[in-house]
């Protein structure tokens, strides 16, 4: 492919190839502060390619490919090439990674201990993690959290945070504009703007943190805290893991250990301030 880039996010070394310069340039800007080691072998390959050669010029549309391909993934217009690249990176990790158990969850850490937040799109887990990461927490990731099957530690995957819709203004009001990517308006996932994690979060991306608290946030509704039993947390996390089945018994062992050793709660909150207050309250108890 004519435009290439390597990016290391946590333990994953990506090799990205694109028919167009724009998505690669946008990625290079978002990931400029990440450690570069081009000699390291790539673990995941993402390809953004034109469906037909002339499509590179005429109404260009970006197809996502790589080691794993979802046959019905929509091509996106070139203006959303950055989103296509992000989706491609997520896909390769979600389907291909085997070294850790992969949870579709955000995570932040403090004093070597991790808070893991799992939820559907729209639960607010990304926004909460991003906001906490601007305070005295280390952002570990807004989308994936990796669990080491052997020791149970959480490992970070601090890709550029994908801020959506209302979260964009909320975060933009707090950070230097140089840490924000271009606004991708009206994508299939709504408006999207990427946030470059803080330098200290990127520098610490290889440091493990032991899970201390599991939260299942739900944005909207009255403030509420609901303790969650080990069984329910186990079921929810098998659903939130993209490679639980592929890991076999190692995944089973990692997940039973995680839910046994880590207190879990469902939380509902009407706004981010209330959500953060709940997090700090539960953390104060869990981290004792």
């Amino acid at each position: 492919m004519r435009h290439r880039l390597r990016i290391a996010v946590g333990p994953v070394q990506f090799r990205i190839g694109s028919d167009w310069a724009e998505p690669v340039a946008a990625l290079a800007r978002l990931y400029a502060g990440y450690p570069q080691d081009d000699a390291r072998p790539a673990e995941a390959t993402v390809r953004l390619f034109a469906a037909r050669p002339w499509r590179r010029w005429l109404r260009p549309s970006v197809h996502i490919g790589g080691d794993f391909v979802v046959p019905d993934a929509l091509p996106l217009p070139l203006s959303m090439g950055l989103l296509a690249a992000e989706m491609g990176m997520n896909l390769q990790v979600a389907l291909g990674w085997r070294r850790h158990m992969l949870l579709h969850a955000s995570a932040v850490a403090k004093n070597g201990r991790a808070l893991i937040m799992s939820g559907e799109s729209g639960s607010g887990k990304s926004t909460l993690a991003a906001l906490l990461g601007e305070g005295d927490w280390r952002l570990m990731g807004d989308e994936f959290t990796l669990i080491d099957p052997a020791g149970g530690d959480a490992f970070a995957f601090p890709r550029a945070v994908s801020l959506k819709n209302e979260a964009i203004a909320e975060i933009a009001a707090r950070v230097d504009p140089s840490r924000l990517g271009p606004l991708l308006a009206a994508t299939p996932k709504g408006d999207i703007r990427h946030l470059i994690p803080r330098t200290d979060a990127v520098a610490a991306m290889h440091e493990p943190a032991h899970p201390a608290l599991l939260l299942f946030p739900r944005f909207g509704g009255e403030t509420a805290i609901e303790p969650m039993g080990e069984g329910e947390a186990f079921v929810r996390l098998t659903e939130a893991s993209t490679n639980y089945v592929a890991l076999g018994e190692a995944g089973f062992a990692a997940l039973t250990r995680l839910v046994r050793e880590t207190p879990a709660f469902g939380i509902s909150y009407p706004d981010s301030a209330a959500g953060m207050a709940l997090v700090e309250q539960l953390w104060a108890e869990a981290a004792k």
């Binding site: 039993g229 080990e230 069984g231 076999g248 018994e249 089973f252």
Partner: peptide, 17 residues
């Protein structure tokens, strides 16, 4: 492999995974 998890019990069948 049988692991009690509160009210539920998780059973991993090594033959069928």
């Amino acid at each position: 492999r049988v692991e009690p998890l509160g009210e539920l019990t998780a059973i991993f069948d090594r033959r069928s995974m």
